[in-house]
Design a protein around this nucleic acid. Structure first.
Length: 513
DNA sequence: GTTAGGG
DNA sequence: CCCTAAC
C-alpha cells in the first residue's frame, strides 16, 4: 500500500514577462499558471490554467477583478479540462465519479466527536473537518479548479536572482520596473532571502522608488492544504494521479483564495494595512506565508465588504466530513492475497470471484484500483472554523452511493451465462446466479438479467453495430435460440427450489454449492 | 428478497 | 449499471 501524503507546492516562475505559479504535484502537465505582482505591495499576475479563465488586476492595496464571469468570491467557474489525461482522469468508469471515495468513507463510516476525533474500526484518529463541498456542486465544478487567474502585470518587482536559485524556486532574470529601469539590487537591499513556511521572500525596498515604502515579496511557493491520498501498491501511477486529482479537485472545487499567515497567525482582517499587520519592508518576511485555501474558507470576517465573500455558496446544509490524519489513513480495502473463497477446482461455478476475475484482467485491475483509491482531503483549521457553523445536510442517496465500477462481461462469463440460461431459462436469475456466478461476487442476478438483455439485443443487431469485446456468434445464436427464452417454466427435469439446484448438472460440470 | 423493465 | 415498481 502506498500512502502518499504530500503538499502541493506551487511555485512562481517567470515566463514571458509574467510570473507563473506552477503547481508541482498536479497530475497534469506543467503549464504557466500563476503570476503575482503588485504595485503598492505585490502584483500578482496569475495566468489561468490550463486556459485563461479570468483576469485579475491588482492595483495597489485593492484587488480589482477584471473578471468576466464571476466575482472574486466564487472562484473560477468555467469548466475546463486541464488536459486530456486529467480530463478523462476523473472518469474511472463510464461516467465521472460522483464523489470522492473518501467522502463516502467518512460520511458512512466515521462517527466523530466534536473534538475532531473519530473512531473507525477501533482506530482513533484525528480528523479534519471537511469544508462544505456539496457534491453536486463539487461535481459540477470539478473541472475548473486548476485554472489560474490571469492578472495584468502592472509592474514588476525587480530582482536578480540568477544567483539565488533555490530548489523549486524562481529564477528570474532581471526585469524592468515600470519605468523601464533594470534593477537587480533587491537581494542586497532586502537583507537576505529568508524562506518562510510557504517560501515567501521579502524582496525588500524597491530600488527604483526609494521614497516608496514598499514591501516586495518573492513568493516561491504557496502552502496548500495537505492532501492525504492512498492507493494500493498495485495501483497504477495513472490511478494515483487520478486520486490526487480528485483530492485536489475536492479542495479547490469551490475556488481558491489566498490566505496570509504572518508570524504564525492567520491574518484575517483584510482591511489592515501591511504595516499594521507587521509586514514591513524593514523586516524580513520570513514569518510571512501565503496559502491557497479552498473557497470559502473563513468564517465571516469582522467587517467590510469582504464578509460577503465568506458567505457560503451552498444553500443546503451538509454534514461535516472529516478526514483522518495521515498517520491513520485507513486502508484501501485492497484485498491482498485473498484466497478465502477460492479453494480449488471444486469451485462451484464458472465465473471467477471478483478478485481475480476475468480475462479482461487489465480492466479489472484498473477498476479495482479506482475503487480502492482514497483521496483524503483535509482542510485547514480555518476551514474547520467555517465548517463549525455550516448546517448539516443529509446527503442524497445518489450522492452517498457509488456507482459500481463497470466490469464488462468476458466471453467466458457470457458463455457461462448462456449455458445457465439454457438450463434454467430466463426469469430465474437468482438461480442463474447461484448456478454459474455464485462465486462472482460482483455479479448480481440483476446484472445477469441485464446482461442477458443486452445479449439479446446484441444478437439481434448487426455485427458492425456491436461494441466491446466480441461475443462469439455461436453464443449469440444460442441466446436467440428459442430454447433459452422458452424455458420460462422449469421443466420436470429441473429443480424448482434452490436446494436442488446443486443437483443440476453444471454447465462446467461443477457442482453448485 | 426477486423479478421485470425502463432509464 | 442504476432505479424501482410489482410481487
Amino acid at each position: 500500500m502506498v500512502k502518499a501524503t504530500r503538499n502541493m507546492e506551487t511555485f512562481l516562475r517567470r515566463q514571458n514577462g509574467r510570473w507563473h505559479l506552477d503547481v508541482e504535484s498536479f497530475p497534469v502537465d506543467k503549464k504557466p499558471s500563476t503570476l503575482v505582482t503588485s504595485d503598492e505591495s505585490v502584483k500578482l499576475s496569475v495566468s489561468t490554467y490550463p486556459a485563461p479563465c479570468r483576469s485579475l488586476q491588482v492595483i495597489r492595496n485593492d484587488v480589482k477583478l477584471a473578471n468576466k464571469d464571476d466575482d472574486e468570491n466564487s472562484g473560477c467557474t468555467q469548466p475546463s479540462t486541464p488536459n486530456k489525461a486529467s480530463g478523462s482522469a476523473p472518469r474511472v468508469r463510464d461516467r465521472p465519479i460522483k464523489k470522492l471515495l473518501a467522502s463516502k468513507y467518512w460520511e458512512e463510516n466515521l462517527k466523530s466527536d466534536d473534538e475532531g476525533h473519530a473512531n473507525s474500526g477501533g482506530k482513533a484518529m484525528h480528523v479534519y473537518h471537511n469544508r462544505n463541498i456539496g457534491y453536486k456542486h463539487q461535481r459540477s465544478q470539478r473541472d475548473f479548479h486548476f485554472k489560474k487567474r490571469k492578472l495584468f502585470k502592472c509592474g514588476s518587482f525587480s530582482n536578480s536572482d540568477g544567483e539565488m536559485s533555490t530548489d523549486g524556486g524562481i529564477s528570474s532574470s532581471p526585469t524592468n520596473d515600470l519605468h523601464g529601469n533594470a534593477s537587480s539590487s533587491c537581494k542586497a537591499s532586502s537583507g537576505g532571502w529568508a524562506a518562510a513556511g510557504t517560501s515567501v521572500f521579502n524582496v525588500g525596498r524597491a530600488s527604483f522608488r526609494p521614497d516608496d515604502s514598499r514591501v516586495k515579496f518573492r513568493i516561491k511557493s504557496f502552502r496548500v492544504p495537505e492532501l492525504f491520498v492512498e492507493n494500493p501498491e498495485n495501483a497504477t501511477v495513472g490511478s494515483l494521479k487520478r486520486t490526487v486529482m480528485e483530492a485536489v479537485t475536492a479542495i479547490l472545487g469551490g475556488g481558491i483564495r489566498i490566505g496570509v499567515v504572518f508570524q504564525g497567525k492567520k491574518v484575517r482582517d483584510d482591511n489592515k494595512t501591511l504595516l499594521q499587520t507587521g509586514i514591513s519592508h524593514e523586516y524580513k518576511l520570513d514569518a510571512l506565508g501565503f496559502s491557497l485555501e479552498p473557497y470559502p474558507v473563513q468564517a465571516p470576517q469582522p467587517l467590510g465588504p469582504d464578509c460577503r465573500s465568506c458567505v457560503l455558496p451552498y444553500d443546503t446544509p451538509r454534514p461535516l466530513t472529516r478526514w483522518p490524519s495521515p498517520a491513520t489513513v485507513v486502508h484501501t480495502g485492497i484485498q491482498q492475497g485473498r484466497s478465502d473463497d477460492h479453494t480449488g477446482t471444486d469451485l462451484n461455478n464458472f465465473v471467477e470471484s471478483d478478485h481475480d476475475s476475468a480475462p479482461s484482467s487489465h480492466y479489472t485491475a484498473l477498476e479495482k484500483i479506482s475503487s480502492n483509491s482514497r483521496a483524503l482531503v483535509p482542510v485547514t483549521a480555518v476551514n474547520a472554523e467555517a465548517l463549525s457553523v455550516v448546517p448539516l445536510r443529509k446527503p442524497k442517496r445518489s450522492e452517498s452511493t457509488h456507482r459500481r465500477i463497470r466490469r464488462p462481461f468476458s466471453v467466458a462469463e457470457v458463455e457461462a451465462l448462456v449455458q445457465a440460461v439454457e438450463k434454467l431459462g430466463t426469469g430465474r436469475w437468482r438461480d442463474v446466479k447461484l448456478r454459474a456466478f455464485d462465486n462472482a461476487k460482483h455479479r448480481t442476478y440483476v446484472d445477469l438479467k441485464d446482461k442477458w438483455k443486452t445479449l439479446v439485443h446484441t444478437a439481434r443487431i448487426s455485427p458492425q453495430q456491436r461494441r466491446g469485446e466480441a461475443v462469439p456468434q455461436e453464443l449469440l445464436d444460442r441466446v436467440l435460440s428459442p430454447h433459452c427464452s422458452r424455458l420460462l417454466v422449469p421443466t420436470a427435469s429441473q429443480a424448482t427450489d434452490e436446494t436442488a439446484i446443486g443437483d443440476l448438472p453444471s454447465p462446467l460440470g461443477i457442482r453448485c454449492r
